[in-house]
């Protein structure tokens, strides 16, 4: 491409950001709300499934297997399989995002539950804790570091995955990337990319801080670092 022939097309342009502030805010908002909603729903679905797999071990293989198969289906294909039924738009993207977050969450919750020190569960049993009470009051709190690690991975992945929603016209910042590609507007693609990375980072830090607030006990920081490694 000859520079003399074409108008300037910089990768970074503050002017673009200022002129399209409303547009960017709209898509950023869409991105954030989709991510939040997907991760929360996935967590709500994953918790009972992981608890089931933990308390009834014969369900562990089918639960993990199904989540694994769903996870293997490429996002584009999943949207293609869903769109004819759930239509073009938010619902399709949301279902896809939840499906992909499920495997990471179930796996991490299960590992956390299974990693609880047997001496602790023994002690709880000795104190007369029933199965349900033990799960809620002893095992789940002990599994929190692993759950948080899973939540971090799921959230960061979801932030990136939202962009694939462009195939059904609802991809948050991905819409800006795609529009920038269509009109060959470099600054638009770059701005959306940077915002995506920043959003992932902010979400990750937010979860870590939240986890620290929820788990004031001492080992949390070290355990977090270990389980995410």
């Amino acid at each position: 491409m000859l520079r003399a022939d074409s108008p300037p097309n910089p990768w970074f342009s503050w002017q673009y950001v200022e002129r399209n502030r409303d547009d960017i805010a709209t898509y950023l908002g869409q991105h954030v709300s989709l991510t939040l909603e997907a991760v929360v729903i996935a967590l709500v679905v994953a918790l009972p499934l992981a608890a089931l797999a933990h308390t009834r071990p014969r369900f562990a293989a089918p639960v993990l297997g199904t989540a694994g198969v769903l996870y293997t289906i490429p996002s584009l294909a999943l949207f293609a399989l869903l769109a004819p039924y759930t239509g073009i738009g938010r619902v399709t993207v949301l279902i896809g995002l939840v499906v992909y977050a499920l495997l990471v969450l179930i796996r991490n919750i299960l590992v956390g539950l299974q990693g609880v020190d047997p001496a602790v569960t023994d002690a709880a049993r000795g104190m007369g804790y029933g199965r349900a009470r033990m799960l809620v009051q002893v095992e789940l709190p002990q599994a929190l570091p692993s759950i948080v690690a899973g939540l971090r991975v799921a959230t960061v992945t979801t932030v990136a995955l939202v962009t694939v929603g462009v195939v059904v016209g609802y991809g948050g910042l991905g819409q800006l990337m795609f529009r920038g590609f269509r009109s060959n507007y470099h600054a638009e693609i770059m701005t959306a990319t940077i915002l995506c990375l920043v959003l992932a980072l902010v979400a990750d830090v937010a979860i870590v801080l939240l986890a620290k607030a929820v788990m004031p006990w001492s080992r949390s920081a070290r355990m977090l670092a270990e389980t995410s490694a």
Binding site: V156, T157, V164, V166, G174, F178, N184, T193, A200
Partner: peptide
């Protein structure tokens, strides 16, 4: 993990 595939694809393509 945080970098969207679509971002890289559109960046490289354009």
């Amino acid at each position: 993990r945080a970098l969207p595939t679509l971002a890289l694809l559109t960046l490289f393509a354009s």
